[in-house]
Design a protein around this nucleic acid. Structure first.
Lengths: 348, 348
DNA sequence: TTGAAAGCGCTAACAT
DNA sequence: ATGTTAGCGCTTTCAA
């Protein structure tokens, strides 16, 4: 079935194709009477402009591409643990795109590849997106940023605090860690363990820094004593928890740098016969579904990931709509401490 | 920066654009010497064909669109509970697309809309995908199927057992329910509660049927006694669990039609002072991360969702590559019973 | 085996 | 306020 084109609509309306184009794109210089006149046939015929042809005509592509790290995505798939962060990012961006007549395309890129620049360039040539969303750890990858900048394609770095080119949307992870740590300090905890994230992600260091600073500010001696390396996986979290809980005196609270490791802490504590929060308080960072449904539901930092992504998409779509705007901007979104049942006052 | 086109490559190679096109698309009738000759410049220049132009030229679009129900997605986003099924579907399809030079585009459609047909048609006109993946509940929506069939766009219905047009990839949910129920029967359970899913999804009835059949086959009198309505949400699952656990005599096991409701059962049981699996066995269906990390980790049916989606994408890509193939096929993938710690022998 | 030319559906630039 | 024309980058005829 050949589909209806702008020519059909124009013929039916008895006007030129350009007029139809103007109406469809809400351009000025169309007489008011024409609006319904041209619009009616387009409705009747069920016309919607073909995106490829539009792009060929020199207009926008109505495409936003989000780059995800391939290795991460693959591993995620294999382990099937559901990377909630990416999902929420996608929902937010997709909804915003959808509302603005845009389409979101997820693309896998191999950050470790030697051909990274070439690959990124190829995707851009092939797809011609109006904008690109970068998720960690590509948000801070110099090669990716370089290609994007060279091509002059608007892009937004998600979750990056680094001062780089393009737009960025993030939240203050260090401050979030300080707030979370502060919550435990208020409950009387002094021996607090902290399981770090993978060094590949800039966020790991930021959270660790916030934790250490909060302890230092509270006058805790040797604030780094409880810092134990983790890697964002359940297994890594379990190992770290075992190390921490074998210490004497034992920490009365543990902060995990992500939810999966926090779940692991809960498991290890349970195995050791420790009750949460009576014997051990546990707090974490991402507020994924799993920790809301855990025993007990966990205290955490709530990040507005979907909102961040929606903002990112909005910035790109606006940039495509009004060229010549600033090509850099920096946005910090608020987070929220959510106190649940996994944290309680330290027992005497 | 103007990007490199086929013309540049042709000039550099000293051949016609058509020859370059042939090389790029692995078409026959190119002399062997030309292959490296034309390919070298294309590498040097970093050429990749523009998808929009390709499409305009009458070739494939290299696009697969997956339709998701908008209301479901929105609700999912708001409740932020992470619809693992969709995520796994997407991973599988995306990886397959990526491996074949394709791109996956998620589109939201409003199944409740009166303009559904028009909207679907608009997306198809706009994007011109080479194929469409339908996720439940759109897999069985007659209007959606009608538009697709009329347009002659290859599509695959995911998780649909209905005998309809197009391709379908599913697993035998009824059989899965029978196997899961059989596991409990073997452990000696006779009073088994079953919390159904939402009636909007065809899978709900299939699982319920399998459960009832298994009990009947085992000679359990009144096999429908334990069937209690649920809706796939945590709250709905909790309500159903409360009803079931208030019965006297109490069921010794409960099967929930999805993981979120199973988590709710665990919560309610815990609140009532029932220990799992000693006092109550719990089993469920989707094997999402949350039930692997729950206390205790739950017995479940493992569905190869990503593999199903990958197969779906493969079918569509193959169909686009070799027109004239059968436009219907039906695939049933195997599932797996995974026994964890939430189910145990009935206590005397 | 190779190439020249036409055209896909749309929009930008340039008339009118 | 409206229409005409010339591409956009590619692939398909069809011819050499």
């Amino acid at each position: 079935m050949r589909s209806v084109t702008i020519v059909h609509v124009a013929e039916m309306a008895g006007v030129s194709v350009k007029t139809v184009s103007r109406v469809v794109n809400n351009e000025p210089n169309v007489s008011a009477e024409l609006l319904p006149g041209s619009r009616r046939p387009s409705r009747t015929l069920g016309y919607s402009p073909n995106i490829a042809a539009r792009r060929m005509g020199g207009a926008k592509s109505y495409l936003i591409v989000a780059f995800n790290d391939r290795a991460l995505t693959l591993e995620n798939w294999r382990s099937d643990r559901g990377n909630n962060w990416i999902d929420r990012m996608q929902y937010g961006a997709m909804l915003e795109c959808d509302a603005r007549g845009y389409h979101l395309l997820l693309e896998l890129i191999d950050l470790e590849s030697e051909q990274l620049e070439r690959r990124v360039a190829a995707v851009l040539s092939t797809l011609r997106p109006d904008g690109v969303i970068l998720t960690p750890p590509s948000s801070d990858h110099p090669d990716v940023l370089a290609v994007l900048a060279r091509r002059q394609i608007p892009f937004v770095r998600m979750g990056s605090m680094a001062d780089g080119p393009g737009h960025s949307v993030a939240l203050d992870d260090a401050e979030a860690a300080r707030v979370l740590t502060g919550h435990l300090l208020e409950l009387g905890h002094r021996r607090i363990g902290f399981i770090t994230g993978s060094a590949r992600f800039a966020v790991s260091a930021r959270r660790e820094d916030g934790f250490v600073e909060a302890l230092r500010a509270a006058g805790v001696s040797d604030p780094r004593a409880g810092v134990t390396p983790g890697d964002f996986t359940f297994e890594g979290g379990a190992r770290a928890a075992e190390i921490l809980l074998a210490q004497s005196p034992r920490p009365t609270a543990i902060i995990a740098s992500n939810d999966e490791m926090a779940l692991a802490v809960l498991h290890v504590a349970q195995r050791l016969g420790l009750s949460t929060p009576r014997d051990l308080s546990v707090a974490t960072f991402d507020d994924s579904p799993s920790i809301r449904f855990s025993f007990p539901p966990m205290t955490t930092i709530r990040q507005p990931v979907a909102e961040m992504a929606a903002l990112g998409a909005r910035i790109l779509i606006d940039a495509a709509a009004t060229p010549g705007q600033a090509d850099r901007s920096h946005h910090l979104l608020p987070f929220e401490l959510i106190v649940r049942e996994s944290t309680g006052p330290v027992q005497a």
